[in-house]
């Protein structure tokens, strides 16, 4: 019997502990923290009310040991009343926040979006695998250190109604201030979902690249970044063989609204 009483006592202790856990939160910060809040902010307080509070604080501050901080708070709250958005009142930021210079950048407008070539198609290559947010590396076989021919490429998301596809390979950094095109191919059937390595489908039209060679040539310095871009064209532009790729790209950008991008980097040695 004493043991039974002891057992009952332990069970009660266990229940008490459980209840304590539930109500006190076992040291957690969730709901208990809320209930601990002083609730100093009256609901329905407006920025104007906050401003007048700040001014009162400033007046009190004049008699306090920290007049500067209170005055600053009042000034900041007054600034807030003139516009609390970061774009409309950058000077209203707290003292620790950096003050942006100039006006904020403009987000693309619906009209700009409608007139842009949106990178919404997928362009991949089994030979180029990105990792950790860095462009995938290109094997030397696809450069002048190797066979100097293109890797297999696969794509998806070509919009219905496309009339032609064009593929470009360009340096991200210009060469002598000019866009450098290493390879450009037009006339690709929009029903295609990729091309094999070093092989072009029937009907492909190849540009004269920035090396002056009709075809592909990639002779990078180590660490250079390149971009494969696939453009979907809503109408056939049908350039002639050996076309000038920089001028043709301007024609593409005037009508193409969809593109796929694949960056790659080459590390020599």
């Amino acid at each position: 019997m004493p043991l039974a009483k002891s057992a009952s006592a332990r069970a009660l202790l266990a229940l008490a502990l459980a209840a304590l856990c539930l109500f006190a939160g076992c040291g957690g910060s969730g709901g208990s923290a809320d209930s601990a809040s002083s609730g100093a902010e009256p609901e329905g307080t407006t920025p104007a009310a906050a401003k007048s509070g700040g001014e009162a604080g400033a007046e009190e501050g004049g008699a306090s040991s920290k007049p500067g901080k209170a005055s600053q708070a009042g000034a900041k709250k007054a600034a807030a009343s003139n516009g609390s958005s970061p774009s409309s009142s950058p000077s209203g930021h707290g003292s620790r926040l950096p003050q942006p210079k100039g006006a904020p950048e403009q987000a693309p407008t619906p009209q700009e979006v409608a007139n842009s070539t949106v990178a919404d198609m997928s362009l991949q290559s089994p030979a180029i695998v990105a990792a950790n947010g860095e462009p995938g590396h290109l094997a030397s076989t696809y450069t002048c250190d190797g066979k100097d021919s293109w890797p297999a490429l696969q794509w998806s998301g070509v919009p219905p109604g496309s009339a032609e596809l064009a593929l470009y390979l360009m340096n991200i950094q210009p060469v002598e201030g000019k866009l450098f095109v290493d390879w450009a191919v037009a006339g690709l059937d929009p029903s295609l979902s990729g091309i094999d390595a070093a092989e072009l489908p029937k009907g492909a039209i190849t540009a004269t690249n920035s090396f002056g060679k009709r075809g592909y040539s990639l002779c990078p310095q180590s660490g250079e970044t390149y971009m494969f871009i696939l453009y979907a064209l809503p109408e056939r532009l049908a350039p002639s063989q050996g076309f000038e790729p920089r001028d043709f790209r301007q024609e593409i950008l005037a009508i193409s609204r969809n593109a796929g991008l694949l960056p790659t980097v080459y590390e020599r040695g």
């Binding site: 842009s116 470009y168 360009m170 866009l179």
Partner: peptide, 12 residues
């Protein structure tokens, strides 16, 4: 940028 490979392209 006329000489920019990504010129005219919108990336999200």
């Amino acid at each position: 940028g006329e000489e920019c490979a990504l010129g005219g392209i919108l990336v999200s």
